[in-house]
Design a binder for these strands. Structure first.
Ligand SMILES: [Zn+2]
Ligand SMILES: [Zn+2]
Ligand SMILES: [Zn+2]
Ligand SMILES: [Zn+2]
Lengths: 148, 148
DNA sequence: CTTGACCTGTGACTTAGGTCGAAGGTTTAT
DNA sequence: ATAAACCTTCGACCTAAGTCACAGGTCAAG
């Protein structure tokens, strides 16, 4: 059982953020102590970590709430509903994934095209590499322009 | 050459967003007409599409500005600087990618575990599937609890 | 010659996701 | 018994990324 400050510290967030998540129905502590202290279980902590990961991946709190609500309301919902929601989120994730891979490819191409040396990057064609979906680019520095 | 309204419409954003991007050094129209109208080239449009894609993938405008500034300042920067920035962004992208793949895996597992039928989803263990990094889960609906 | 699209500048407002402080009160640890 | 951590409510404030509107003015097309 974690008290609010303990959980917050463990997950590197603010106490107020935990209260905020509670008010916004994202994470309620499983119990309270006799004196009213919030007490979070290990499972609560995992849920929090799930929330933080989901956020990191670009889900809004509303979307995360939706995902979490499946768990809460599952007795009241049909498998069909659950699957529909999950498949829709899966779809979102896969769309993002495709974009990210496109970025990764572009950035890799760019990194490969750039020699990383101390010379002027004038020949580095970032946007070309970032925007084109086509072939590789590689720049060359002339060794001695002056003496041509 | 696109006028502001044309580009905005073509990319399904607000005119004011384009002015906002201009004020925030993300996208300046290549030229102006004699009368002062913003005129965007095809290349400007591509840059805009890059911005929109980058945003969609979770980059902040500040990060996008950094990426774009490479192009603008490349004569003034060394390949080493360019490569450092690019590799750092690449790193960010790969971190996100890893998280997203984790999500994809979880959601897929969940989707597979759920029969999608009209029955109560009581046996659907979302969080288990979402949080565990372990094995597959599959639920079974008893055919007739009453008559047991 | 009027209408709609554009220009400028200014400032208010919005949503999401917090963060902080104050006021006033309890609990827990040392 | 005192300090640190917790509780509550309440409201102010913050950033990011816009959006909207107003005022006063120019421009282009039918
Ligand atoms: Zn280079
Ligand atoms: Zn180089
Ligand atoms: Zn199910
Ligand atoms: Zn089922």
């Amino acid at each position: 059982m974690y008290k609010i400050g303990e959980l917050a510290k463990a997950c590197d967030i603010n106490n107020d953020t935990l209260r905020f998540y509670e008010k916004n129905a994202l994470l309620c502590p499983s119990t309270r102590s006799e004196s009213g202290y919030r007490l979070y279980t290990e499972k609560d902590k995992e849920t929090l970590q799930f929330i933080l990961r989901a956020k990191g991946v670009g889900f809004t709190l509303a979307e995360i709430r939706e995902l979490l609500s499946i768990e809460v309301n599952k007795a009241d919902s049909a498998c069909a509903d659950v699957k529909t929601l999950v498949d829709s989120k899966l779809n979102d994730v896969e769309t993002k994934l495709a974009e990210l891979i496109r970025f990764q490819t572009s950035l890799k191409r760019l990194s490969n095209a750039c020699c990383g040396g101390a010379e002027s990057a004038e020949h580095c064609t970032i946007l070309e590499a970032l925007e084109s979906d086509t072939n590789d680019v590689r720049h060359e520095h002339k060794l001695n322009d002056k003496e041509s």
